[in-house]
Each structure stands twice: as C-alpha cells, then as structure tokens.
Amino acid sequence: MSATKTTIAKALNAGLRKAMEDNPKVILQGEDIGKLGGVFRITEHLQKDFGEDRVIDTPLAESGIMGTGIGLALRGYRPVVEIQFDGFVYPAFDQIVSQLSKLHSRSRGAIKVPVVVRIPMGGGIGAVEHHSESNEAYFAHTLGLKVVFCSNPEDAYWMIQQAIECDDPVIFYEPKRRYHEKGEVDFDAPEAPRDLFSAHTVREGTDLTLVAWGPMVKVCLDAAAVAAEEGRSLEVIDLRSVSPIDIDAITQSVEKTGRLVVAQEAPSFVSVGSEIAAMVTERCFYSLESPVIRVAGWNTPYPASKLEEHYLPDLDRVLDGVDRALAH
C-alpha cells in the first residue's frame, strides 16, 4: 500500500492516462481537451503524450462529438468524450438517447457501444447559467445507459478506468466543485477497491441512513460528523451509481436504521431521490419509522449564482432533513 494524496482532478487525469496506456483503442475527444487540457485541465498533457489522433480537439458541436464518438466505437474504439459543462450536454441528448443507449438492444446484441461520456456536473462554483446543473435523472431514465458519479480521488481514479472497460455506455459525472479536494489514492493497487456499480457505505451508523452521490457525499459526511456530536449516529452511503441503483445496499441499511434521507443537488421533482424513496417504500415499508425525506435542490431552474447557496442543499439543510425524519 503506497497511498498518495491527490485531487479528484489529478486522479481522473491519472486514470485516463492509465486507461490509454493499457489499451490503444482508448481515445478521448471533446472541446479544448488537447493543448489546453480541457477547461478543468482533466486531460492535461495527454495530447502531448498520446498524440492528436488519440486526444482529439473537436469542433464546437456536442451532437457531433457524441455522434462521431459512437461511430468510433462502432469501428472498435473505446471513446471517452468530454462534455465541457453539464448544461451543454443537451445538443448531444438526441445522440445519447436515440443511438448510444439503444444500439445494443436494437441490434439484439450485435453492436456494443463502449462510450464514456464525461460530464463535469453540479453547482457551487459561482458560474453563469448552464454551468451548474445536475441532470442525472434524464440519463438514469434512459435504460441502455449506465450513470455513475465519483465523489473522491480514489473513486475518480478507479471508476474512470472501470467505466472505460465497461462494454455498456456510461455517463460519468464528475463533481466539479470537488475537483481540487484531496484524498488518498493507492495508484499501485492491483485492482479497484470496489465494483463500478456498487454503493459504498462511507460511514457506519445506527439511527438514520443518508444516501448521496457526487458532490453531496461530502456534505452528508460533514453532516454526520456534526450529528455525531449531538449523539446521533448516521450511516452515510455513497451511491456511486444512479443507474443501476445498488438497492440492496440501501435497503439493508434502512432495515437497520429505520430512517432514510436522500440528499441531491438536483430538484426533487421526478428525480433519482424520488425513485429511491419509492423503491425503499416498496421494499422495506415495515422497517421504516418515518417517511423517506428528500433534501434536494428546489423545484426551480438553477438560480443566479449569488443565490446558489440558498438553492444547494448544505450541511444545515441535510441536518434539517435528518431532524424531520427523527421527529417521527
């Protein structure tokens, strides 16, 4: 074990580099990912080291990036396409939903499209409109896609490689406000510490289960630490994959704690949190001591950045949700 402290951004870069070294069919494409290394520098130096044929600066056209990425996969490549910001994925939405998600099933398995779509997601960076969205529900709702979030450097390093190895298309969300937060990564470990699609219990507890993914995992861990000072034992699950959902991990926890709060940046209306609430209610109704509480972005478009602190669920709002669940 030779763990190194690094950031999510650097871990993603290292994971991409490793995947490219391991498999010459892995290629990256997106806007500004070459010389610039991407607007978040996730692909920094990769074009210099792997060449312009494998790290492709594309025209500014997301449907084009996505559609040609699928075409490259049809020719046997494993493209990792970068969508520059969450709110810019919609021009590619048609290609993702109509082609990427369906080609395997419509060809009855003849076609595989192992494309990874990297999307820096979420708010909290004071950005202008269209740069702070949590749009995972659109893609989770599209069967044929898999949708995952990394929340820490270790997962960032391993999950990006696992997503690239996966023969199914994967929407890979990166919590952009956490890009520069540090954590330990064992770059020499022989294999990934956990499966790409399993939830990870990142803090054990007995009074209530908190489920979160991406940028909200840290908020929930902080909330659990504060709650512990008040004598409340919260279990925190980093869901990691919102399609598929590792429902057993959640229900096992809820059967123990009897209470569930789901925290997400996305609006609660018709969301992944809503789906989890429904699934848990169906599966462990008699274990529940309180209704499932969703702590989420408000049911509005993402606000102007001067208001985002009122919009994004923070530690206090998560604890408020915890209080409401425990009040039953």
Binding site: I27, D53, I56, S63, G64, M66, G67, T68, G69, I70, G71, L72, A73, L74, R75, G76, Y77, D94, Q95, S98, Q99
Partner: peptide, 18 residues
Amino acid sequence: VIGNQSLLGTGYAMGIQR
C-alpha cells in the same frame, strides 16, 4: 431518427483513418 447516422458514419470514418 433523421440525420443521426451521418455522424455515426463520420465517426466510423474517423476510426478508419486511425
């Protein structure tokens, strides 16, 4: 879906180049 395949074909052609 009208037009989708032009991009798939272009990406495939990019693969031929590679």
